[in-house]
Design a protein around this nucleic acid. Sequence first.
DNA 1: GATATTTCTGATTTCTAAGTCAGGAAATCC
DNA 2: GGATTTCCTGACTTAGAAATCAGAAATATC
Lengths: 213, 213
Amino acid sequence: MSQDLLSPPARKGDRTAARIRDAALELFSRLGFERVMMGEIAAAAGVSQATLHYHFQDKSQLWRAAMLQLRAVVAEEERLLEAATDASALTQLRMAMRLFLAISWKHPALGRIVALEGMAGGERLDWLDAHLIGPRNRRLAQLAQAAIDAGDLKPFPAAQLVITLQAAGAGLINLTPMMRATFGIDTAAPDVREAHERMILDALLGGFLTHPN
Amino acid sequence: MSQDLLSPPARKGDRTAARIRDAALELFSRLGFERVMMGEIAAAAGVSQATLHYHFQDKSQLWRAAMLQLRAVVAEEERLLEAATDASALTQLRMAMRLFLAISWKHPALGRIVALEGMAGGERLDWLDAHLIGPRNRRLAQLAQAAIDAGDLKPFPAAQLVITLQAAGAGLINLTPMMRATFGIDTAAPDVREAHERMILDALLGGFLTHPN
DNA sequence: GATATTTCTGATTTCTAAGTCAGGAAATCC
DNA sequence: GGATTTCCTGACTTAGAAATCAGAAATATC
């Protein structure tokens, strides 16, 4: 989350701003933009509410700053995929799904934000589409299309296929509070996580293969 | 949505209350509780804001009333499943998934509400769990477990399996605004819907089968 | 270690949305 | 068709959260 673990952040204000961003990201992603009050963020970051306005113009700007944190996460995924462009489309897609799951566990904020804003539409979704999720998803859809063209995947519409796989992958993680309420299951438990991984990568992705191993 | 198409609703107030409930359900499910303003609901229902308070005590009560609309939908699903308790667990589960998809297209509010509140937790989730989604999901998990015990499904944790299938099934529908923003796809189009149906029922559910046909 | 700059805060203002209420209009009843 | 109840509304109050600001505290600079 912090931008650089090595350099002892130049100015004090930068560290405070980072704490605020982190707290904001956690809250915004769990609850959505309007459920979160500036006072909560301030409390979580251990500063006064006025300090939020010292570092960030207003609530919207703080939200954007928090989202930009997530871009680094996505960029890392890009980088890893980039290193494997000579593998088959199916292999790349499978790797992308594996990365997606790893990221979803490590940064559940991403999936929750997409779910929240992707359902609601509006200017925040437009911003996210432009800066965070649009390019990434279009790229994945291209990969899926290539895998279909190669005869490796069943010929479903590529965009739908990718989004559905992601929805399945992030669902359990996003719905952690519901899993607790309904089943008393703690999704953070290692066995839950391990079963989920197999479920998505083997069973679900396997269902799309034209010739399963 | 309206409670009874035959009887010309006894009192005028009942019809107005129903219009308000419908408008509230649509807005709450798309945007979540706090993103929706009472004024919006009033405008959508074509009444003044004060009228909302004449029919419903406050915003929370209106939300609950809107959610109770959904219970009728779930009850109908129950009824259909009830009529088939002598079929194999797998057959029942497949039927349940088919119903789930049909309902999700017809009443997208249900899936969106579950996603919104299931992510956030809190008192509204507790209410939903008790009145709407808990019993249903536990029942489906039992079905899945039975299908696993019968050797028809791969032995994944039943609760996770059910929730993941639902997440996959509702994902595309919930994310309609995102599909438009990122891919320009209108999920209401018949071909999108048809492909989705096959994707979930054949490919994804197929991936869980121990001996696919 | 005195000065200048940055960072932070309590108190206050502004804004927005929920909720109330008295009274007028419409429906219902006889 | 007049009386009575139900229904609805415009104008208002209240509550709460965002945003501002003057100045105090901390930090950096020399």
